[in-house]
Design a protein around this nucleic acid. Structure first.
Lengths: 155, 155
DNA sequence: GCGTAAGTTCAGAACGTATTGAACATTGGG
DNA sequence: CCCAATGTTCAATACGTTCTGAACTTACGC
């Protein structure tokens, strides 16, 4: 085949990730690191595998590393830096900060209209309460998942 | 003052919403509908209040209505259409579809590498399990919030 | 420590998308 | 019914962002 199934998967992942606000090229990198063998690859390898410029790859890897989605990994005796997905990469992409941001926006709105008892403040109050609820519960949910995972691998 | 606090709030909300992928103008509309008095407004009123073109307002209101974030409301004896926020507007913006989309992407990846037991499939399996977990639990969480809300307003 | 492979930076090209504004359609009170 | 107010459509434009490619810097195996 001309284009490997792995490459096609990475491209597809790129589209999905791009739909969530990530630049297409960076999404491709992440998609590639989800399924590539070996799991750790250098920038040059990824540029070749995905047909991306060195510039894109450099910027993308830095961004993904900063965001904690990928990590450098030692490859003694080989030139350059190698990267692999962090185990909890995609768990960071829950967007929980968004909920906080929303809740804060609602709080500011309530300030503006004069508190939750002001006329017409139900809109803001309900919404604020909802986001505050999610903001508090989502971390617990994630913790529950982690606990149950640990339970499995322990057995 | 030159620009009302309400208008400034709407602009601010626009920026926040724009950060989540919504066009700025549409975010402003939604922000305005969060704090305006009266709660229901016509497109013309909003265009004037926010300094937006009729074109933007028309497109924005249609999009927000389609997405279920705002709804038309009857205003007998007055020209044009009036809109207000839906009570559960912002609860729809949890982005739960994203989790499904992710989970599906992981499933396709697992297909590709030959199932969860294939070498190097831990990346995909853990991630898939996580998103499947959230996908299942988030609706329950939202339901819990609704129940507890109903409990309050009943009392 | 040399030479080359690897990675970084950055200016500009290419691209897409939001927004406007003007022409057009619709609607409902008088 | 009429016409002014309201809303819609769409072409043009302005805008920001991504991506590339070439020049440059860094680093490491030999």
């Amino acid at each position: 085949m001309d284009i490997s199934a792995e490459r096609r998967y990475a491209e597809e992942a790129g589209v999905v990730l791009a739909g969530m606000g990530m630049p297409l090229a960076y999404g491709k990198l992440l998609g590639w690191l989800l399924i590539c063998t070996p799991a750790a690859q250098s920038g040059t390898e990824m540029a070749a595998a995905l047909g991306l410029s060195k510039g894109s790859v450099s910027a993308g890897l830095r961004m993904l590393e900063t965001g904690g989605l990928i990590q450098r990994v030692a490859m003694p005796g080989r030139r350059g830096s190698f990267y692999e997905m962090t185990p909890d990469a995609m768990m960071r992409a829950t967007g929980s900060e968004k909920f906080t941001q929303f809740r804060e926006l609602m709080d500011r709105g309530l300030d503006l209209v004069g508190g939750g008892d002001a006329p017409g403040a139900e809109r803001l109050r309900t919404t604020r309460d909802f986001y505050a609820f999610i903001e508090a519960e989502l971390p617990k949910l994630i913790q529950r998942f982690k606990d149950q995972q640990r339970g499995r691998s322990d057995g």
